[in-house]
Design a protein around this nucleic acid. Structure first.
Length: 631
DNA sequence: GTAGGGTTAG
């Protein structure tokens, strides 16, 4: 077994130990690790002999593993292999297992593996890694560790690939701190020298859990160590992590470094960057990256294009996606698939353009693309937005007949719409149906439920559900708390609302701009304007930028209490930041105008605010027109 | 030509 130098272990520990590892939720792997230090038993010698006698089988050259397309092919090939004499070698069997596993038939692969063991075919560390991989996907990584333990007894020595599989298993179960701990232990106890794949697994785990900073530390460590240079895959992982953390410019900077180091980007690298840029509507840069891909002879694939389609649709440009990107995809041989069509359908549905959405849906069927639960959920969302609740409900009920099960988002979408249209009874029923169907409500579902109850005047009911969820230990995010705070404020229970708001940090939650605005609104309603103004300062100090809603809320608060000079100051700030008065604020100002105020401060304010009343301009005109007034 | 790591949807 190869050794790793102590400086690497120390540096890796330093890079990763800034956060203490979480306590084990599912037992420990350390006892298993002790087996690693046991000397390999003699069995290995026998298995080696058995293995080498079989590998001279002339028939194995005829076995074509590349032609396996279906599980049945693999199973019949397995039977055929068992009939061969002498038996094909373990290498041939592992190739078959690989084919089955790549098709994601993990339980089938595992049964074949067990059958091999029962037939006395000598299992090696390659087959074992496959089995562990399958276990990780089926019953969890703990079963994988059990397999590892069972093989110490049979003298098979796990290697860096085996451990990478187990690390991946931990990552799959969101047990990243444990994965990091095991990784460090493997280095510290010199069990195996990490290679690029192993680093890649940990770096991916860190990126997936939002620890991109630590991932970059590991990347730098790899570079400093120089034993295994981070390649395209590692760089792509970190670049994707940065993009997902909304740090697109950092991602672009890392991309430049990658280019400088002559590490060639691939379609995945570009796809991640394009995704990051699409989220921010940085279309010019998207186009220049596409051009760059062309220069490097890297073809964007259906995923790259689908991301662009989705980005355009999310920013209200479904027509551009349909009219320009789709034809381009066909022309480049990256035919749109269900994901592409779902994005497009969702784009039209979000704007309530159901006729266009239906047309896309029909063309999708014509192309023999099979709509999935996401397609139907997009349509359900569209009908909800167009207030066609009957149609939405009909689709939801139709799903099982299409062989599809509505998911938590399908239900939550309708639940949201029912509450919004004031149909609390139907919403409660649907929530019960959902649970009866075995669909587990998510945090956003609870947010919709509690907010819906509050907004429809059932604050007491919302509070009792809220405390029930709390007592069950169900995770509730800042949005759920905001809904409750808003409900309490509107129910005249400012004290309780304030209490919850100022204790958010004790729940590990940080108020966001919406939470601050809701609290500010509550304070304004009760006339606690100075406290509201203090909160505005405080939120900025805490790095939370107020938005147009925040400013409108507080300006309105001051206007309603006729504290015009302060309202004017706040208004100036709002305008300076490029925010406009919304319709409600505009109407209050118009009311002031109608009062024919002679107060110079008021008049000054009216003159400032009116030109900014873009949203409310129509209303304002109507309002004034009705009274025979004009500016 | 035996195993392990990276990109897409509501």
């Amino acid at each position: 077994m190869e050794r790793i130098g102590l400086p690497a272990a120390t540096a890796a520990a330093a890079a990763l130990s800034c956060r203490p590892p979480l306590p084990h939720k599912h037992g420990t792997c350390s006892s298993l690790l002790r087996h690693l230090l046991l000397p390999p038993p003699l069995l290995q010698f026998f298995s080696f002999r058995f293995h080498s006698t079989m590998s001279s089988n002339p028939q194995l050259h005829r076995i074509d593993f590349n032609n396996i397309k279906k599980l049945e092919d693999a199973l019949s090939l397995f039977d055929e292999m068992l009939r061969m004499r002498p038996l094909p070698s373990i290498i041939q069997f592992t190739r078959l297992l690989t084919a089955v596993t790549k098709m994601k038939h993990y339980s089938a692969s595992l049964s074949l593996y067990k059958e091999m063991g029962a037939l006395g075919i000598p299992i090696n560390e390659y087959a074992m890694s496959i089995a562990i991989n399958c276990c990780c996907h089926l019953d969890g990584v703990n079963v994988g560790f059990a397999i590892l333990g069972s093989f110490f007894r049979r003298g098979i020595v796990p290697n860096v690939a085996t451990f990478s599989t187990l690390l991946k298993g931990l990552v799959l179960e969101d047990r990243v701190p444990e994965a990091v701990e095991l990784f460090l232990k493997l280095i510290r106890e010199r069990v195996c020298e990490p290679n690029e794949v192993m680093y890649g697994t940990i770096i991916n785990g860190l990126c997936r859990t939002g620890n991109t900073g630590r991932a970059i530390q590991l990347l730098r460590l790899m570079e400093e160590e120089g034993k295994c240079e981070p390649s395209t895959v590692i760089y792509s992982t970190v670049i994707d992590g940065l993009c997902k953390d909304r740090m697109v410019d950092d991602a672009l900077a890392l991309f430049s470094q990658m280019i400088e180091k002559c590490i060639p980007p691939n379609v995945v690298t570009y796809t991640s960057l394009i995704h990051g840029l699409c989220n921010y509507g940085r279309w010019k840069e998207v186009i220049s990256l596409l051009r760059e891909m062309g220069e490097r002879k890297i073809s964007p694939d259906v995923r790259t294009f689908s991301i662009i389609v989705d980005g355009l649709c999310k920013q209200g440009m479904a027509e551009v996606a349909e009219g320009e990107v789709l034809p381009m995809m066909r022309q480049k041989g990256a035919d749109p698939n269900v994901v592409t069509y779902n994005a497009l359908i969702d784009g039209y549905c979000m704007r309530g353009q159901m006729d266009k959405a239906r047309k896309i849906f029909d063309s999708m069927i014509d192309l023999c693309l099979v709509p999935d639960v996401i397609t139907y959920t997009a349509l359900i969302n569209g009908y909800c937005k167009s207030l066609k609740m009957g149609e939405a409900m009909r689709l939801l009920l139709e799903l099982p007949s299409k062989g599809l099960q509505p998911n938590v988002i399908s239900y939550s979408t309708i639940l949201h719409a029912l509450f919004r249209s004031g149909k609390c009874g139907a919403a409660r029923d649907l929530f019960d149906d959902m649970k009866a169907a075995g669909v587990v409500p998510s945090t956003p579902t609870y947010c919709i439920l509690l907010d819906g109850l509050c907004k429809n005047g059932h604050v007491a009911e919302a509070l009792s559900v809220f405390s029930m969820l709390n007592s069950k230990g169900i995770y509730l995010d800042i949005a759920v708390y905001s809904a409750i705070i808003d409900g309490l404020c509107k129910d005249g229970k400012l004290e309780s609302a304030r209490d919850i708001f100022y204790n958010l940090s004790s729940k590990g939650l940080t108020p966001n701009v919406k939470a601050y605005t809701i609290m500010m609104n509550g304070l304004c309603q009760e006339g606690l304007l100075d406290e509201a103004k203090e909160l505005l300062v405080k939120m900025e100090q805490n790095g939370c930028m107020p938005n147009d809603v925040t400013y409108n809320t507080i300006v309105r608060g001051f206007l309603k209490r006729e504290r015009y000079p302060e309202a004017t100051t706040l208004l100036d700030k709002m305008l300076a930041r490029g925010f406009k008065a919304d319709a409600t604020t505009s109407e209050i100002v118009v009311d002031l105008l109608l009062a024919k105020s002679q107060d110079p401060v008021q008049l000054d304010m009216i003159n400032r605010i009116l030109p900014t009343c873009k949203d409310g301009a129509k209303n304002t005109d109507k309002f004034l027109g009705k009274r025979g007034l004009c500016f």
